[in-house]
Design a protein around this nucleic acid. Structure first.
Length: 510
RNA sequence: GGGCCGCUAGCUCAAUUGGCAGAGCAGCAGACUCUUAAUCUGCGGGUUGAAGGUUCGAUUCCUUCGCGGCUCACCA
């Protein structure tokens, strides 16, 4: 039996028909609430019974019916606007016969508008004593149970609207998310950054090492890629003289799905002319605690069993040193400094650690693998991991005294990479060499290696100012700030495999 | 893609060794003029994710498939 033909739905349809017979419009055009439920509760929730009697207040609001408690001639509704709830007292002798008939035909989930004086019941609950009841929309399908709510995570993700109706915590997560994005914008705009939008569909997908989604433009008959990063476009804008620029938008990567990965995810990227990666660390130490306070009220957030302090300064850890120390500890033998610089030594250490080494991987990539395997999960409190091998960083600027190392850091919190930043490579000749090296990697079977982008190199030839650039995973930041274990908990409509027979989202224009 | 786990009424969950598929909430009928998980009385509600197999008999055991969760790999 499907939901749609259950007896409960038949009953709801019958109640709707009864309403129509009474001359009640089933789907009226509008209602004019004087205030939302949230606003009424905020404005008057602190008033005592005596205060409400002394200076009567009329409330006019609307919401979804989440509970009905009936006593014959005296009845209570609970209305919700998704954030707050308010009780409505439905008394037969206070309402017109029509309005009381509407009450009797209500089902859980229906939308109604009410008007009446605010008072406190014997049990001291703020309540609207309804003098008017308007029917606003029918809920034809039964809602999840009122006490346990909706537990089935699959339905929570597929039918987010149900989750939002019955699980206030879910609503809270997306309100925090909205405040995070707003706070990031405010922070950057306040420091002179210009917000822009760059192409989501690109002929050459670049700016990250990842596999793209492919699509096709009919009129131009050309292959297009959903972007994996906005990086190369934003840096073109710094060439154009936009010295501080940022974008908050979606990236698309055709890779696995996990608690930390959704195929489309939201990224902040910003570029700051005349700054380097040290400046970016300092800015990040301001940005994150500020955003946390704006979104949640605190910069010390619970996450799982841990309490994460986002207060500056963050710990700093050299990637090679972290990998060397962790490997020494795991193997029980001190690895000499510099050993990870040699491919032979690095490969030997990796194989002893059980880290897989592909033939095309150089010392740098092997070191990065060792770091990810041994260290990542241990970095619970905010930690800048800095100075990456050049091999894994084709767009970053080298250190002046060490061409095998670039000025790059990643910020780890709760074992997860939250941000990735570097001093931007702006030497076109060196950039071309890096792209060519990536092409060799690609020829060697690495289909995540970076593609050549001739126009980007040309842009650098016009002169890009020295700049620092950083990407921050907004979804992961929101996970952290809402204590959410899965990225799907912070994305309203995460990608799900369609159910067999489902028509939702099927293409109609082919 | 691999491994492990799950899928039973609208929702949340039971069901002993393989032996009549149940409860609470929701729904329906009734009582009740301040309840708040309201209460009380009575009544309906199932292709146990799908298809096969074993068996006198399958929610239970076996096979395949679907969807999901966790995890490993890849990645941010």
């Amino acid at each position: 039996m499907t939901v749609e033909d259950s007896d409960q739905v038949a009953q709801r349809r019958a109640n709707l028909e009864e309403l129509k017979k009474l001359g009640v419009e089933a789907y009226p055009r509008r209602f004019d609430p004087q205030a939302s439920i949230e606003e009424i509760v905020r404005a008057h929730g602190g008033k005592t019974r005596e205060e409400l009697e002394a200076s009567p207040i009329t409330g006019r609001t609307a919401g979804r019916v989440l509970a009905i408690r009936s006593f014959g001639k005296a009845n209570f509704l609970v209305l919700s606007d998704g954030r707050s709830k308010i009780q409505v007292y439905i008394r037969q002798d206070a309402l017109s016969a029509r309005d009381f008939s509407i009450y009797k035909l209500l089902d859980f989930g229906d939308w109604v508008g009410v008007e009446g004086k605010l008072f406190r019941t014997k049990t001291n609950e703020l309540t609207i004593w309804a003098s008017q009841l308007e029917f606003l929309a029918k809920c034809l399908l039964p809602l999840p149970e009122k006490w346990h709510g909706l537990q089935d995570v699959e339905i929570r993700y597929r039918q987010r609207y149900l989750d939002l109706i019955v699980n206030p915590d879910s609503r809270r997560v997306f309100e925090v998310r909205s405040r995070v994005v707003a706070a990031v914008r405010e922070f950057l705009i306040g420091r002179g950054f210009l917000e822009v939008e760059t192409p989501m569909m690109q002929a050459v997908p670049g700016g990250a090492l990842a596999r793209p989604f492919v699509t096709h433009h009919n009129a131009l008959d050309m292959k297009l890629y959903m972007r994996i990063a906005p990086e190369l476009y934003l840096k073109r804008l710094t060439v154009g003289g936009i010295e501080r620029v940022f974008e908050i938008n979606r990236n698309f990567r055709n890779e696995g799905i996990s608690t930390q990965h959704n195929p489309e995810f939201t990224m902040l990227e910003f570029y700051w002319a005349f700054a380097d990666y040290h400046d970016l660390m300092a800015l990040t130490e301001e940005l994150l605690p500020g955003v946390a306070r704006a979104a949640t009220g605190t910069d010390e957030v619970p996450y799982g069993d841990a309490t994460i302090s986002l207060k500056a300064p963050f710990r700093r850890l050299s990637l090679r040193e972290a990998a060397r120390e962790a490997a020494s500890k795991t193997l029980g033998a001190e690895i000499p400094a510099g050993a990870l610089r040699s491919r032979e030594a690095a490969a030997s250490i990796a194989s002893r650690l059980g880290v897989e080494v592909a033939p095309a991987m150089g010392a740098g990539k092997i070191t990065a693998e060792i770091f990810e395997t041994l260290c990542e999960a241990e970095l619970v409190q905010p930690t800048f991991v800095y100075d990456f091998p050049t091999e894994v960083s084709p767009l970053s600027k080298q250190k002046p005294d060490d061409p095998d190392t670039v000025e790059r850091f990643e910020l780890y919190i709760a074992g997860v990479e939250i941000a990735n930043a570097f001093s931007e490579l702006n030497d076109p000749a060196e950039q071309r060499r890096r792209f060519e090296e990536q092409l060799r990697q690609r020829a060697g079977g690495d289909d995540e290696a970076h593609a050549m982008d001739e126009d980007y190199v040309r842009a650098l030839e016009y002169g890009m100012p020295p700049a620092g650039g950083e990407g921050v995973g907004i979804d992961r930041l929101v996970m952290l700030l809402t204590d959410s274990p899965s990225i799907r908990d912070v994305i309203l409509f995460p990608l799900m495999r369609p159910k067999a027979g489902a028509t939702h989202g099927s293409p109609v224009d082919e």
